[in-house]
């Protein structure tokens, strides 16, 4: 990925360094490698190595409860997964969760960011509060919302008009999904709003003032001046959150355990590997999950032309 660029500090030294002796360059290179090595080794040990192993295992029919029956089956695990309606249903669920939650987080998060940006009082209080959902464990958020929606111990049914007190949110697909997404949106909107706040801070006040003087309405200023100027921040926030939402697992595990067709692709993979001990097909799903994340990342980067370098204001 060519979206990362060298930091300023080192770039400014380039001309001087070019002229410097190669000895120094060599020392610097070797020091840098030593400094970076532990991080690289550790990151690859826990990701690349297992991923390669998953790639290998995915070619076998292999169940942990019958290890002696392990058998090479080529690509047939991939065929089984890709031709299964369950795989596509869960992928569909995951994509829907991703789109809906990111949309709401973006809208609500932007509103929150505007409030925080203009805030003249209670700054500390608001910022402290907004960090609490971010810090709350996802599992706790899942429980809080599950109990809130529960018809025996929750308050949502009592507060919402047009909803009977007996209504069971977890009895069917639509309402279960709403509950899951409510928890997801609640927990992650603050994160989104902080990223957007940083973006807002980059929009020059002079430009807004100038637009004001020209007689632009509030909406015109928003669409013509503010949003275009913080596009990079928005896109980075969307990229990060979308990839995070695509991996949704905790909330589903806690709230429905996949009942009523509310499984995500992560949950499906987890069940094959950890609950059913089907390491063969489970590994194939792991590989597919990884590939699909790459596809999502690629699509977002290409379609929205996210430029991480832009976000760093270094372009």
């Amino acid at each position: 990925m060519s979206t990362t660029t060298a930091p300023k500090a080192s770039r400014s030294q380039e001309p001087r360094r070019k002229a410097a002796v190669t000895d120094r360059e060599r020392t610097e290179n070797s020091l840098a490698r030593k400094l970076v090595a532990p991080a690289i080794v550790l990151m690859l040990f826990v990701t690349a190595f297992p991923m390669l192993r998953a790639l290998y295992l995915s070619l076998f029919s292999y169940s942990l409860t019958a290890p002696d029956d392990r058998e090479f089956v080529g690509l047939s695990n991939y065929w089984t997964a890709l031709s299964d309606e369950l795989f596509w249903r869960d992928t569909g669920n995951t994509v829907m969760i991703m789109l809906v939650t990111v949309f709401f987080e973006l809208v609500i998060g932007f509103a929150f960011a505007l409030v925080m940006h203009r805030l003249i009082f209670a700054r500390g209080l608001v910022r402290t509060s907004i960090l609490i959902p971010y810090g709350v464990i996802t599992v706790v958020s899942g429980f809080a919302w599950q109990f809130a929606f529960s018809n025996s111990n929750g308050f949502v049914n009592g507060w919402l008009p047009f909803i009977g007190d007996d209504f069971n949110w977890f009895a069917q697909y639509d309402s279960s999904m709403i509950a899951i997404m409510a928890s997801e949106i609640w927990k992650t909107t603050p994160f989104m709003s902080l990223l957007l706040l940083a973006g807002l801070a980059q929009v020059s006040e002079d430009m807004i003032e100038a637009a004001k003087v020209d007689g632009a309405t509030w909406f015109q200023r928003l669409y013509k001046v503010i949003l275009p100027n913080m596009k990079a921040a928005i896109m980075v926030a969307v990229l990060f959150r979308a990839l995070d939402a695509y991996r949704i697992f905790d909330n589903i595990f806690v709230m429905t355990a996949g009942a009523n067709g509310t499984e995500s692709i992560s949950f499906l993979t987890y069940r094959q590997v950890i609950e059913q001990f089907q390491l063969g097909i489970g590994s194939a799903l792991s590989v597919l999950l990884f590939l699909s994340v790459l596809v999502v990342a690629f699509v977002i980067v290409k379609v929205f032309r996210v430029n991480l370098a832009d976000a760093r204001q270094e372009s």
Partner: peptide
């Protein structure tokens, strides 16, 4: 960057085995 995007669930199987 890639690791930050990594779907952790896809690792638990091989990691468990390791």
């Amino acid at each position: 960057l890639v690791i930050a995007m990594f779907p952790v669930v896809s690792l638990v199987g091989p990691l468990f085995d390791m």
